[in-house]
Structures are given as structure tokens and as C-alpha cells.
Design a protein around this nucleic acid. Sequence first.
DNA 1: GTAAAAAATCCCATAATATGGGATTGAGGG
DNA 2: CCCTCAATCCCATATTATGGGATTTTTTAC
Lengths: 261, 261
Amino acid sequence: MSSLERMLGLLDAFSEAAPVWTVDALGEAHGLSRSTAYRYVKDLCKAGLLAPVGGGGYSLGPRIIELDRQIRNADPLLMAARDTLSDLLPRVGEGILFICGLRGDAVLSVFLMENPNTLDISYSRGRPMPLFRGSASVVILAHLPEGRLRRLYREHAQAIAEAGLGRDWISFRNALRAIRARPYLTGRAQLDPGVFAISTPVFDADGNILASLTLAMPESRADHEEIAPLAALVGEGAARITAAVASRAPLLPIAAGHSPR
Amino acid sequence: MSSLERMLGLLDAFSEAAPVWTVDALGEAHGLSRSTAYRYVKDLCKAGLLAPVGGGGYSLGPRIIELDRQIRNADPLLMAARDTLSDLLPRVGEGILFICGLRGDAVLSVFLMENPNTLDISYSRGRPMPLFRGSASVVILAHLPEGRLRRLYREHAQAIAEAGLGRDWISFRNALRAIRARPYLTGRAQLDPGVFAISTPVFDADGNILASLTLAMPESRADHEEIAPLAALVGEGAARITAAVASRAPLLPIAAGHSPR
DNA sequence: GTAAAAAATCCCATAATATGGGATTGAGGG
DNA sequence: CCCTCAATCCCATATTATGGGATTTTTTAC
């Protein structure tokens, strides 16, 4: 394990239950000497990823908030989604609309709008989703290119089996193929008890899967209403976002030799 | 400069104008060899701070969004502010209410609510504020303890003079003292043209400055209305947030020897 | 105001490991 | 199928990160 990894590993310590740490506690928890712990913390502070909060305590720093803003401002998906979701929200009734994006191998909610007085689940931007459970994730999974799926299966066969997506590569692939054939995917209490969800895929200009749009609502609604009309609304929203994303210029990587900053 | 600093420095490259980079471009821009650039990027990806976006491009990663959520969920200021601001918003009329927090030596907006169809300025969470300009920052500055001010003056004398806060330590201190004596601070077009702002301080349980609450509105309102009643509303809001923060248990650092994660 | 405690920095010989040049493998596209 | 571009691997070398403890600075308490 390199020193870079060790240093970045310190960020893992900051949880909801333990948002403030002393340098000594951090170092001890990660098996670092006092000197090294102070060095790492100092560097992380210089980068703004940590910040002193008084009394020898440190917590996550302002740079993270700033970087998140940077992501929000640059993400074509978010810009495309904002208008569509605020249109859609009043038409779907009680519930929450959210978009889950694929970033690296993680799926997480990147944008969310809710009708007031709805579910008491604390969804919010940044909530990490398990890759293989919940319709919001699975609908993305189902549209990934085969090469990527193959790698994912190799690395996560255990979790895939536990999620009921297949005990071998073939059945996994077939399960996803069946999902892909449907216009939307539903899930009942897969992540949160009492929540029923309808998810549909969002694509980029080239037809690659980019994200999913999900309507989460109380299970009771699913018992008493027809799902199909709601699913049609959600699907329409996803299609509009897909179109909006496609109409923007794609983000091209800075070519080698380009000027910095 | 240590390797840790160099690696974290890569994050600086990701701007609104250049949100996607190739490894080669990043390395070249920062004077790294190809091997080292790939190593750094790999480590940053492993930590989730960067993520591949296809075509050899990399952008800021999902971990940042997750860490931001972690900050939001743990910050007592944000929890205390949410209710107060939604109460206050309809009573202040056209404008934006936002809270600027002090994290490390940076002031940035950490929470914001706006009335629809208001200023077209794109304020948003994470916007960095210059330390010495804008009422939202200065009102915080004015309440910092003297030791900290002394250090800030040493390090930023130039910027302080340019902001008109004094050409030497004494006049700087006196300027801030005068501001501290007033219940609120106003600013006209200090950061954004056409914007008039009223800022008031928010304290923690021990009376230390913690943040500022600001109402930003179109300059035209300031020309036609009395400011005092609005300022009273904002001041009342800040007082309520101060009280709400004080009523919560303070966040204590994890003591050395505490269990990790 | 002073004393005591804690936090953070400094110092430096040693060993650990980050570095970079180039070859190699792997994935995508025409 | 081949060709290009992305990414990993390999390894000798020297750079630099490391840790133990002393020192300074800041905070807290009386």
C-alpha cells in the first residue's frame, strides 16, 4: 500500500457517527506514527480536504464542498435534468424523483426533487447505492456493455448471487437481458422498507447508459393504483433528459499539451 | 513539495472550463512523468476522488459527492439553519437567503434558499467567497478572536488593504471593531453587480463566530425601501440559528484510542 | 497573571519506496 | 483483422518519506 493510499484512507474515518477526529486518534486508528499522522493531516488541510475545528479536532474541509459544486456545475446530466424534473414532479403525485448516476463503479443519487410531506426516508444527493440492489442501480447495470459486466461479475460474483441476479455468469447475463427488454423496472422495499420504486434508463448521445430516473413512493400507492401510467410518465421524463443531454456538446477530455488550469 | 501535495494538486486542474482531463494532459500540466501521472490518477480513482468517464478522460469522482453529503449530515449549523431559513424566506420578499460558514481560512456558502424568479446570480452551495470582501465574509471576520486576526493580517495585508479594510494592523483592527459594534452589515455590489446584501453573525454556544446569515436582493429594493426592518428580520433569523446551534450537543473530537470507522 | 497541559512543529539519520524510461498488455474502432 | 490509444508492468536507482523524541506554540485552568 502506497503512502498516497494511506493518506487518502484517512478520509474514510469521517463518518456521520464520528465527524471530528484528533490527529492522534486518526493516526492510531490507521497505524501511523505521530509524525506521519501530523504530516498527512497537514497536507490534507493544505488541500482543504480537512479543516481544524478547534480543540485539536479536525473534520472534512471546505474544498469538498467546493469540488462538489464544481461537479454540479460541470455535469451535463444535472443541467439537463433540472427542468425536466421540476416539470414532472407535480404530475407524479406523492413521492420523490431522483437521478442516480454511474460514476466509476459506484451508483449514487446525484439529483433529487421531492414533493413536500412525502416519504420520511432521507434520500439525498450523494447517497451511495449498492450496485446490485434497488431498481435505480439494476436498471443501469442492465444497460452496461458486456465487457464491463463481465469484469463486474468477476469482481462481485458473491454480491450478485446474494442479490438474486444469478449464480453464474450466464444466468446473470440473461437476467439483465430480460430487464433490458422492458421499458421500466420496479422494485418493492429493496433498499428502504415501505418504498416502491419505478426506474427507467437515461442514455447519452451515443446510446450508452448514463443514469437512471427513479420515482420512489409509498408502497401503499403501488397497492391501490395502476403502475403503468406512472411508469409511462417516468419513462417520458427519462426520454426528455436523454434528449436534453444529447443536444449538448459532449465533454471532451483536455488533449495532451493543452494549457493547464 | 511532497508527493502527497503533488498528488492532491491534481485536483486543482478540474475547473468548470476543463472538467475532463486525460492522464497525459494532467501529467504534463503538472510536470509529472507518465508513470507517476498514471500512478497518482490510479490512487485518486481508488479513493473515488477521480473517476474515468470514457475515452481516456477523467473527472472528479463520486466520493466527493458522498463526502459532501457526509458534511451536510454532520454539520450542526446546517441542521439548525434549515427550519429557520424556510420560515424566514417568505417574510423577506424578493431575494436569496444564504449562510456562509468559516471552514479553515475559507468562507463559503454552505446553505442557501431562494425565492423563485429572483436574482439571476448563480449563488449556490460551495461558492467560495473572498475573505475580505462582501458583507457575508466581513461580518465573520469582524468577530474572529484577535489572535487569529493578527495572523490573517500578517498573511494577507495586501488583500486587506485592497479591500479597503485598512492599510495597517491598527486601522484594520479598528475597522473591524466598528463593524462588530453594529447589529448588521450591508454591502452594495461588492461581489456581484446589482446585488445589495445584509449580513448578520451567527455564533456557537460559547459565543464564538460560526457563520453569517445573509439576505441578498436586487439593488433596486435597497433604493426604494427601508433597510432597517429587513435587517431586523435577518438578525432575528441569525439569533434563532444561534440558539438552535447552542441547544445541540457540541461535536467533540474522537479521543485518542477510540475505535476507528 | 502564571502555571500546567495539550497541540503542533522541528530535526535528522536511516531505510523504505516513489520514481521514470521503456516494454507489454489490453481494449476499441475502422 | 489490424491498428491506435489507454493503461499496466517491470526494475535499478536515488529521492524522500519515516519515526522517535526534543522543542515550540497555543490553549486551558486556576
